[in-house]
Design a protein around this nucleic acid. Structure first.
Lengths: 120, 120
DNA sequence: AACATAAATGCAGATGCATGCATATTTATA
DNA sequence: TATAAATATGCATGCATCTGCATTTATGTT
């Protein structure tokens, strides 16, 4: 007879441990948070190299308000990685674009992420 | 060629989705949070049916301060599930014990948790 | 005009870090 | 040996951060 709670706990702990390791190393070695890395990652694979805040939110899995603030923090902290411009066809929306230095940061961070995640 | 970031993201999203579902259902149907369930779970499998705050913290994976506050909230919200008594041999420490009604709550919650986790 | 949508913001909850406080344990020394 | 000083440990608390929910504001759509 197996213990489902215990199995669940084991998986949860493993995931949490991995997550913390990844986040710590990324901050130490690349000076960006995991969410910030995700932003760069999704912006870069997007067709236009820019996304609506709304769409980024769905990919990253944050609430709308958390996403809005996350981008604000990211701009304040490292203003050169992304850039914000308003959407001409719908003036309610904004676009977040990845810059050249954002792209370079993504590439260096991705090496770190890959090297860590490979071992999970 | 595989994309490690994308694989990691997929796993992360799956885990997050599961976690949110479990927590939501547990609150709805049993009126306790997942962390509160874990507290009851670990207290019940402990030999003495009580644990030091310190040891609970290690099992549950919260910081010491978060654990301290979590137990406080739990006492205030549902004072009958657990009880706190001071440790006679070391007056710095406290013991958290599970009560009879805590045990009953654990059993009913465990049914819910198991039924959900089984599907993950 | 009424309703829908994108983003910003006020607010409250949960967390971690740093620190404080009380108590235990170890070490130094009279 | 006795005891004073230094250090370690268990928990609580102040504070800052990040989050989600509810609401607001500006703009679009019907």
């Amino acid at each position: 007879m197996s213990n489902l709670t215990q199995e669940w706990l084991n998986r949860t702990r493993e995931q949490k441990k991995n997550l913390e390791l990844l986040e710590t190393r990324l901050i130490e070695e690349s000076n960006i948070t995991l969410n910030e890395y995700y932003v760069l990652y999704f912006l870069n694979i997007s067709e236009e190299k820019e996304m609506r805040l709304n769409d980024l939110q769905l990919e990253i899995g944050l609430s709308q308000s958390a996403m809005s603030r996350m981008i604000s923090r990211m701009e304040n902290k490292n203003c050169s990685l992304i850039e914000r411009h308003c959407c001409m066809t719908d003036r309610r929306g904004i676009y977040i674009g990845i810059t050249k230095s954002g792209y370079l940061k993504l590439k260096s961070s991705q090496k770190i992420v890959d090297s860590i995640v490979r071992k999970f």
